[in-house]
Each structure stands twice: as C-alpha cells, then as structure tokens.
Design a protein around this nucleic acid. Structure first.
Lengths: 356, 356
DNA sequence: TGACATAATTGGAACGTTCCAAATATTTAA
DNA sequence: TTAAATATTTGGAACGTTCCAATTATGTCA
C-alpha cells in the first residue's frame, strides 16, 4: 500500500539532475544554480519528499544529528517543566529537536535513558541529575566528544559545564530579610543533607545568620525529605525545641508548604505567629494562602541558558567546562509576615546581586 | 583525540567472528551459540561499543526507530506536563524514547516540529493539537504508515485515533451538583467557542441544565480566553447581567481561578456568595483558597493510555483509528459552597460512569 | 560409514545520505 | 580566439547496520 520512500535519487531522476546536486540543494549550498535549485525544490515538494536525517547522520559526524537530550528528575514538578520549556525554546529555534526523559530520581532509569539517547546519536545533553548521581557517570559521553551541561544540581568532580542558581546568596538574603523583621531564632528546615544543593543553601543560611551577628545553632538545622510531608515533619521537630524558633527558611517551596500545614495543625498562623520563607518560587507560591515569600530562581531562564551554553559547545566542536551561577531574587509576599497589607498575588521583589 | 567510533566490525575483528554474527548477537537472535554470544558481549563491553540506531534504522523499516514523538501545546501547564510524564512512563518501559516538543499553541511551530520529527523517523506520534489545527495536517503521516494518536483535544474529521476525557459527562455532573445545592441560575464561563472541547463541555452544561428541568439561557454562556484573565473578564460580564447567576461552571480551572479573583474584587466570596466549579483538577486546585471544586481528568492516565494505544498500533503494523473517551469525576471541595466543613486539601470525590 | 538434518556462521549487497575529486559549462581577460 | 578562471554538476565511495543466500560445522539415524 504505502509506496516506498521518496529518496534523493527519485528526486534527482524526476528533476533531471544528479543526486549530488539534490544533496547540495538540501544543504542550501551556494554552489548550485538558482534555476536548478528552484526546480529541485519544486519537485521535492510535489513528490512529498522527506529528508532522512538518519541516513545523513550516518555519513556526517554524529555531532550533526541536531538532537539534544534533556533529562530531568521530575517533570511533574513545575520547576522542571518550566526548565524543559526554556530548553525547548532555544533548542527549537536553533533547528534542533529535544529528547526529553524523566528519571523520577531513579539513577538506573537515568543510566538507561542516557544510554538510549547516546544510541540515537544526540549531539549534546542537558541533565538535571538524579540524586546521588556519580560524577563519573557522564565520563563516557564527554570522552566521546558529546557536550554535557548539568543544570540545577551540580556534580562536583565531573568535568562538565554546569549552571546552577545562586543558592548561597538566595538563602543569605532570605535570612537577612527575616532578621530585618526582628527574628533572632531562625530555623533551616528540610532537604537531604547528601546533596550539593543542600550544602549550598545551608552555607548561605549559615553566613546569613553569622553576618547578622547571630549565633549558628546546629539544633536549628532540621533535615527532611524535600517534600510537603518532609516540611510537616521538620516543623514538628522545630516546634518541639526547648527554645523554639520564630521563623524558618525552608529548603524549597514544597517544604515550606508543608511547614505551613504543620503550623496550622498546631493552631499557629503562618505569616502571623511564625514566619516562613521558601525557595524556588514555583507557580503555586503566589496563589497559596498565605502567599509564600520565597527565593525566585526562574527555571525557564536556566533552561534557556543551559541550552545556549550547550549549543555553543556543540558548534565550537569542543569547549571548556564552564560553570555559571544564575542570580536569584527574594520575592516578599505574606508568609514571612511582612507583606500583610499587600494583595496576595503581587509581591515586592528584592533583586540580589550575585557573584557573576 | 577522540578515537573513531567503535563499530560492529571492530567488535567482530576483536572477537574473531564476522560482523554478521555480531549483528545477530545485537538482536538477541537465538541462532548464535551461547559461547560466542558471551564472548562478543564481553568484547563489546570492554571496547565501549555503542549501538548506532541511525545506521540500523537505515536498513530496517523506519517503524523500528523506537522513537515516539510527543507534541503538546503548553508544557508549562501542569496538565500537559503530567500528560507527558504518563506517556514517558509507558514509552520508556517499552524501550522507546520520546521526542517532546512544545508548540505554545502555535500552529506553525506545530508544523515545524512534526516535520522535524518525521525527518528523524519517529515510529509514532502523540499530539495534543494546537488550537485550530487542520484535521488534514496529519494526513501525510498516516499515509506514510506512521500511527498518530490525538489526545485531550479531538480533531473531528481526521482519520486518527484519539483519546479525550468525557467532557460532556463531566460538565453534566458539575451542573447536577450545583442544582442539588439549590442553584437555578448557573452560568457557563470561559473558553474559545471554536474548539471541539468547548463544544463538548457546553453541550454537557446544556444537558445538565435541561435534565434538571431548568431553562437554557444563551446569555448565561459567556466565552473568553481559557485563562485566568479570561475568567476575570467573564465573571465581570456575568455579574453585570440583569438577572445575575448564583453559580458558574467554568471551561477549565484557570478560568475558575480567574472567576474567583473577579468575585473577590467585587467583594463577593467564592464558595460563599457565589459557587464556582472548574474543570481539569490541576494540582493548584486543591491548595487554592477556597479549594476548587472541579472535574478531575487524570492527565497522566490519558498519557499512559495514549502511549499504550500508540504502541499497540506500532506493533500491529497498521491499526484502525479508534477513539476512546476516559471517565472523569467531580471532586467536591470548597468553591462550590458545599464542602465548607471539610479540610481544604481533601475532597470527596464522586465517580461518574461514562459511555465506554 | 554415508546421507541427511540441524546448528552456527559468514560474505556481500542493500539502506539514503554526504563527501570528494574530477568533469563539464560558462565567463572573463588578453 | 584561446587560455585561464569561475561556476556548476557529477559519479563513485564511504558511513554502520541488517538482511539474504550460501557456506561450514555439528549431530543423528540407519
């Protein structure tokens, strides 16, 4: 039924030229005569020709596949969905196409999808690595000359480019803001301690506390799963402390929402009786009640930048591993107790200058 | 620097067999001797061989590329992100890999990405078509024997499989519920009238109204962009009616949120002074205040089913266009004024039986 | 042992493109 | 008019796999 594929040879025959000429037209070469070009194009259109990239890639360097792989650990999380959209934007307009896969934090899944992508000849990879990813996991890729850009979570030790948000500065500013509101016992809640992001955010918390002239107390640092449930758990422990804190910065927004839940369950009003600050500024943050004061990180921007960086490396043939940290800004809403008069959906935003 | 690719010929040489044998091993053929197989596998491992699917696809039918294309119109919308995750789940575990692209409702973008995917030799396509997509747009694909499954929005006239939620039944149940709460003037707010989904939902609204023995008034149907802003606009018009409604079913959750905003701006309490019901049950619905009563459609489930349907068709070589409508259920929360005593985050759910 | 079946293996010849070196057509300069 | 330069076109030979038909090894039966 379905007639055989139309190939450049068919086109050549129909247009009365050689397959080489057709190929030249396909590549937009300036060598070919204008008349010939348009005739060939016309024939292609009318015969319904579709370019076979697979065949082309076979002949060309695999760097020309124009496929870029994107692997994220949780697409359900709108943070990563936005990231993927950012990547897609620049990738698409550069004429590339994106393989997107979800690992659900499974390191095996991640290995599988990356292997699969390699088989398909991706020209580059953007990855937000699953937790506990081994830095050496991407070694073979870069050895094969396939650029890799790590986003969101960095991979200390891996010789790849990375682009992460300025977690340290973000937490510092959150703490500073709370101190400015008069808080002196501020907890750090949530997150898994074995991740680089956790370390950065905790470090930011610590310097924030210390530059404010306050003491750093280890008991105020309470780790938990970086989820809503984890937040409930962490605030429970915080409330149980002998000298209980009056405010908390949270590992991320999910934790912050959980903290709010936990507070309410104890008849405490988030934003009123206890100040809460999140991190990430997911879309739900502004619609929540109370609207969440949080550190905004623009995942879409990270996606765009990561993609640009990757494309640059692909075009350059081979590029140095560079690492970029993107600016973040504190968005003050209600949950910190500062913005009670402001309407829920807007938020004063405080720009933070960050190192590069 | 980067040494040339390792090919099956290299493997063959190193293992002391022919390339054909290596190929057989690659395909898991039972023809090859166990000893030979393991030796070849060992050599592959130690030489760091990576399969070149492009080359293989060149020889085989393109239906074997094991790439499936997914195009959605708005990945930022968590509804579609969930959908993509659902697709990815089944696609991944079937050993396929997913090309995902975002059209942002641009029909040109859509054409581009679909063309690009075709060039890459996708084995099948799952698409949530951009608004005003021409049913004929996917003709060439199916003519080339590439199965297409349309999800979420149907494409009347296109000879492709589709899987949509039961918009009619969902709206009917929403209306029925509001009638049960005593409302007699119920508006239908939001959505673009030129879409099939709009038609279905409106039809559901109409039958809901009529089976309740109420009159259908055209003035109560107020179209608008299917967005938060559109919702604000629509409720403004509704409130301005001489005989104003006391409740509304909305085209989707975004509209419903906008409606709540608009009500508050007029000092009306959603759920108290005016009942609001949404459609989709996006994740924000349960965390919002008031928690949104809405029709839940399980996008991830749609994604999974769509992917299964597609894989089935790919394996079958060629399959009939079948169309499935998935069940939806009304989740009663606060915004309809019924669940005021229940905690915000849970919600009684009412299962609706739908035609097939 | 021969005759046959069965199990493994194997060289080409595709697949649809790009690249190269070479051929041919057209201009230009003298 | 001719040589040289330039513009255009063109047949193969790759690329890394799979498939086919054919070959060789191994086993079985009488």
């Amino acid at each position: 039924m379905t007639k055989a594929r139309v190939t450049v040879i068919d086109i050549a025959k129909a247009a009365g030229v050689s397959k080489s000429t057709v190929s030249l037209v396909l590549q937009g070469s300036s060598l070919v005569n204008e008349g010939t070009r348009s005739k060939v194009n016309a024939v292609m259109r009318e015969m319904g020709y579709v370019y076979n990239r697979g065949a082309a890639n076979l002949r060309q360097a695999s760097a020309k596949s124009r496929i870029i792989g994107v692997v994220v650990n949780d697409l359900t999380n709108s943070f990563f969905a936005e990231l993927a959209v950012g990547v897609d934007m620049v990738v698409q307009s550069a004429g590339f196409v994106q393989f997107l896969s979800n690992t659900s934090e499974s390191i095996d899944r991640q290995r599988e999808v990356v292997a699969s992508m390699r088989e398909h000849g991706i020209s580059g990879l953007i990855v937000s690595p699953a937790r506990a990813t081994d830095a050496a996991d991407f070694k073979p890729l870069v050895a094969a000359g396939i650029p890799v850009v790590v986003v969101v979570r960095n991979l200390p030790g891996a010789k790849v480019s990375s682009i992460v948000s300025d977690n340290r500065a973000g937490m510092m500013s959150a703490v500073k803001h709370l101190v400015g509101l008069g808080h002196t016992r501020i907890a750090f809640l949530g997150g898994f301690p074995d991740t680089a992001v956790f370390d950065d955010r905790l470090a930011g918390y610590r310097s924030g506390v210390e530059t404010a002239g306050l003491d750093y107390h280890e008991e105020l640092v309470i780790a938990s799963a970086p989820s809503r449930a984890g937040g409930v758990e962490a605030i429970g422990k915080a409330i149980a402390l002998a000298r209980r804190p009056t405010a908390a910065v949270c590992f991320n927004d999910a934790v912050a929402f959980g903290v709010c839940d936990g507070l309410r369950a104890r008849r405490l009003e988030p934003g009123g009786d206890f100040a809460v600050v999140g991190f990430d500024d997911v879309i739900e943050a502004q619609a929540a009640v109370p609207a969440l004061t949080t550190v905004s990180v623009d995942p879409q921007g990270i996606g765009r930048r990561g993609a640009q960086m990757l494309l640059k490396q692909i075009n350059a043939g081979k590029a140095e591993a560079e690492t970029v940290t993107t600016a973040v800004r504190l968005v003050v809403r209600e949950s910190c107790g500062a913005g009670k008069t402001a309407p829920a959906r807007t938020g004063k935003s405080v720009k933070i200058e960050t190192g590069r």
